[in-house]
Design a protein around this nucleic acid. Structure first.
Length: 583
DNA sequence: GCCGTTTTCGGCCCGACTGTTTTCAGTCG
């Protein structure tokens, strides 16, 4: 036995995945077997995508080889990494290859071969070394390099220093992508224009935009792209493919395809990479070839024009883009066992919304009418409780008066029912910031954490378990309190808390605010495994925010959620039976 | 180093673009 397992100091999945990815980079720079390199990269992706914590799995003695792309060797290394903090193969390669060389892989235009050449010739180990050598004009002297490459590397370094590896939030990507899509579609001779890639899979952030445009004449589509006014610079340009960077730094890859290849191109460029590998393997198994132009048997085209046709030819039902992550969707498509994913129109109500009684922008009536206009049957008014003082949270007396205001307003609203609610704060010790008898008068009680986000795991877990145990707690709001790109999720035993929520019948929120998307897709899937009911809420702080529900639905779809698993798809009467105080 | 309806060995995705070449390697997606 090694040292006592202390969950508070357990290593994060991200940290382990980063080590695996670094090892893969170093192996590649060292010129090792490329398939061994890929094995470690696959392992890194597996770990990054796990719903549960690898450290917990190891502590429980789980068999890591049950995970995809984790075999005997990698499993042993991972156990060592979790228990002793050391990934043995990484230690071994570090003797031969300076570990910091892996950082150079992030420079656009520089790969393992280039890194090795630069190190062998000039002992270049990091960004600073590389920048100095390039500025001194020494890089161009190396075989395989030249003046243009040298300038490209300097540009790559500048870009890396300016932006890092930052990804763009889905809502921000939409605001950039939709105008561009319309511009391209307005070009002469341009047919369908589809934004593929992780954007189409509705990932919470995108690294770049992959756009597929139908045209018999690639050059005219590309000309249309280069005439767009928000382009910062051109990275590459060809007849079938061009790459530009938009103002603000988002990269766009545009592919022109003939109509007969649109389906295959969409499959190919929507990805994910892992999904494509499975499809391609399936084609190979049948003696066929799948690429972005179609599905081929020798010279004969089996499919290509439409996406469903490509899947059909491979013996599969069409797979919604949100599921294309190699998480079992191909097997499900083979047996027609894909879930009927929830759709935005399935939502009948919203159970988390703020008004100008606390920190919302709009009044009760404006919110109610806006929700009705959007076709909702019910809207829960859940302003903050008193603990969130900066948001002008409501104490018991103001909450009572708000209830009277709702009662007075309701008769004037024919199309929608307002529910009296509150977003109460889960205090540091797990109590709520309003007493039980106040909560007992409400239709909907959302319990959320807003403060003390950095409690150690054990205390954070106990805190939430206690809140979930309150008989008035109906919804666990933005459970991990993360904000994308800004704030990490709280450290908590999520599995245990989700199991408790399932047992108590507390609905777990998918907060649709694009900055939150909390729970995230992986955790939603974990919640389903634990048997939780879900609720998709906008947490609206304005009328316009009521339109954000679809972002929550996107993440639910990515987690294989059907409408039956989401309580706010229920008619109001049924909802009331499901969400109510417990005895 | 992983994987298995060609299963314990022999595979492992592949096409476009760039810059360097003078027929192609490296990188990217």
């Amino acid at each position: 036995m090694t040292r006592h397992h202390d969950s508070r100091h357990a290593v994060s999945n991200q940290a382990v995945a980063a080590d695996c990815a670094r090892l893969a980079d170093l192996l590649e720079i060292a010129g090792e077997n490329p398939f061994r390199v890929r094995a470690w990269r696959n392992a890194a992706e597996t770990i990054e995508g796990l719903g549960e914590r690898l450290a917990d799995a190891v502590a429980e003695g789980a068999d890591l080889t049950a995970y995809p792309h984790i075999g005997k060797d990698i499993a042993a290394a991972l156990e060592s990494r979790v228990r002793d903090g050391v990934l043995p193969p990484l230690e071994e390669i570090a003797v031969r290859v300076p570990p910091e060389l892996a950082d150079l892989m992030a420079v656009k235009g520089l790969g393992p071969k280039g890194i090795k050449a630069l190190y062998d010739a000039f002992r270049i180990r990091g960004l600073d070394d590389l920048a100095a050598a390039a500025e001194a004009g020494r890089v161009r002297e190396l075989p395989g390099f030249g003046p243009k490459k040298e300038q490209a590397l300097l540009a790559g370094i500048r870009q890396l220093r300016a932006r890092g590896e930052r990804r763009t939030r889905l809502d921000a990507a939409e605001r950039l992508a939709e105008p561009l899509r319309e511009w391209l579609a307005g070009g002469s001779g341009v047919g369908d224009v589809v934004i593929a890639g992780s954007y189409r899979r509705r990932k919470e952030t995108v690294g770049d935009l992959d756009i597929v445009a139908v045209s018999s004449d690639g050059d005219s589509v590309m000309a249309r792209l280069f005439a767009y006014d928000a382009i910062e610079r051109t990275v590459s340009h060809g007849t079938t493919r061009s790459t530009v960077v938009l103002e603000g730094g988002l990269q766009v890859d545009l592919r022109a395809v003939p109509a007969e290849s649109l389906g295959a191109a969409l499959v190919y460029f929507t990805g994910s990479k892992a999904h494509n590998v499975v499809l391609r393997q399936r084609a190979i198994d049948r003696g066929w070839k799948l690429n972005e132009y179609g599905l081929f048997e020798g010279g004969r085209t089996l499919a290509g024009a439409d996406e469903a046709g490509v899947y059909r030819a491979l013996g599969l039902a069409w797979i919604p883009p949100e599921l294309r992550e190699d998480q079992g969707e191909v097997a499900a498509a083979e047996t027609d066992a894909l879930p009927a994913l929830i759709e935005p129109g399935d939502l009948r109500g919203d159970l988390h919304a703020h008004t100008d009684w606390s920190d919302g922008k709009a009044g009760l009536e404006a919110m109610a009418r806006a929700a009705a206009e959007r076709g909702l049957e019910y809207l829960a008014i859940t302003d903050h409780g008193p603990r969130v003082r900066v948001a002008n949270g409501l104490d018991a007396e103001r909450l009572r008066r708000q209830g009277e205001a709702i009662d007075a307003l309701q008769p004037e609203l024919s199309d929608i029912t307002l529910l009296k609610g509150c977003e109460v704060d889960i205090l540091e010790d797990g109590r709520l910031d309003l007493p039980d008898e106040v909560l007992a008068a409400l239709d909907i009680v959302v319990c959320s954490i807003h403060f003390h986000l950095d409690l150690p795991r054990d205390r954070q877990t106990e805190r939430v378990l206690r809140a979930l145990d309150n008989p008035h707690c109906m919804i666990w709001g933005h459970p991990t309190a993360r904000e994308i790109g800004r704030r990490e999720p709280i450290d908590i035993d999520l599995e245990r808390c989700l199991a408790a929520a399932a047992e108590k019948g507390v609905a777990v929120e998918i907060n649709a605010q694009p900055k939150r998307l909390d729970l995230c897709d992986r955790h939603v899937r974990l919640a389903l495994q634990k048997g939780c009911r879900l609720v998709i809420n906008t947490d609206a702080h304005s009328v316009a925010n009521l339109d954000l529900a679809r972002f929550g639905v996107d993440q639910a779809r990515r987690a294989w959620v059907t409408s039956e698993q989401v309580v706010n798809t229920l008619p109001l009467a049924a909802l009331r039976r499901v969400l109510r105080p417990r005895p």
